[in-house]
Design a protein around this nucleic acid. Sequence first.
DNA 1: CCCATTTCTCGACACCGTGTTGACTATGTC
DNA 2: GACATAGTCAACACGGTGTCGAGAAATGGG
Lengths: 210, 210
Amino acid sequence: MVQRGRRTTRVSGDERQDAILVTAEALLAERGFDDISIEDLARGAGISRPTFYFYFASKDEVLLALLDRVITEVEHRVGGLPRDFESDPAGAWTRSIGIFVEVFVAHRGVATAAIAARARNDEVRVLWSKSMQSWADFSTEVIRSEQARGAAPGGIDAHDLAVSLNLMNERVITAVLNKESPAIAESRALDVLSTIWIRSIYGSVNPGRA
Amino acid sequence: MVQRGRRTTRVSGDERQDAILVTAEALLAERGFDDISIEDLARGAGISRPTFYFYFASKDEVLLALLDRVITEVEHRVGGLPRDFESDPAGAWTRSIGIFVEVFVAHRGVATAAIAARARNDEVRVLWSKSMQSWADFSTEVIRSEQARGAAPGGIDAHDLAVSLNLMNERVITAVLNKESPAIAESRALDVLSTIWIRSIYGSVNPGRA
DNA sequence: CCCATTTCTCGACACCGTGTTGACTATGTC
DNA sequence: GACATAGTCAACACGGTGTCGAGAAATGGG
């Protein structure tokens, strides 16, 4: 959990902190991070610009707090999933990927701002890569065990494959969220991504069920 | 070709324009776009800051010009490739992807700055997506004809697949360039990417040769 | 060769967003 | 009621962007 800015946590004024976060997420839903000034956030929260600095050290810290929430939500939801890769590989992968799609769609402003901010801000980069790392590690483990039990062929390092597929998901999802062109239809995203995962992990169109 | 800033193109002073571009590419190799000021570019080119504006309307225009060159280089080199997908699918795909890897590695500063600038700048976004579009269209065509001749299975729309794989390449290559974690080793990138392309296009580890 | 036109240059200025400082006001507490 | 601590903001300093207008330097026609 990221905790900064507030000197201590006592009574009210927490509402202010929260108002800033709420304002930020709302504004991020309608315009880019760079087009939102600290003045905007302060006004939205009903305070003056200098007062903003009482709660957050910078605009980036606000984004960091929002990103932290989103990542926590993904982790929580992925953690609650059954791990039935042996009995239903295609379904299991699809459900995991589906969580990412859903959560990022629900917080598209935060997701795209955070991904852009990575290039500029160390803390954002570290937080994001920590999560990517843990998702990639999880995928690596599963792929490795699928390879070990003979369900998936070797010929490619499990970690390289896991990292690449996770990066693909990140990029494809952001392309969808930003309605970039080229991108794919939001409604087909989950299906397309899982197909690519399954084909490249199992080396076949239809992985056998065990 | 992007042509802006200069009122006409006559004699010298072109060297100035070029000096700015050279300075920009050099500085981009050592620090991020945001950490380079117009003052820096002007000084590097031996002119004053206001004079910079005689040649370029903004820092972004400089980046746009650099990006234009890089894209042209990729197009030129990809265009010169043999299109032997029927006789050697794996090799043909690998050679195409290899061009991207090579060119982006050679211009890593420009590539990463441009990809980051997309979020902020319309012209950069349009230029980049035009290229992505054309690369995706090319891949789509090839996939479609591989599906038509029975070498690749259906079950996924050729365009969706092509777009996703191209986006994966973009993301994996930038992760490698920025030495992000997680990322994959630069030396294995080409191999990993082509393996994923081939497995997900052909639905098998080893596409038959025709 | 000289003058007019166009290219090129830059000092000085206006602007905007960030982050800081220091003084001020509430609020609860012994 | 005095005293800490949370909370607030006007005013300032700073740095980067972009503009303006006055000139210097090159170019070409007469």
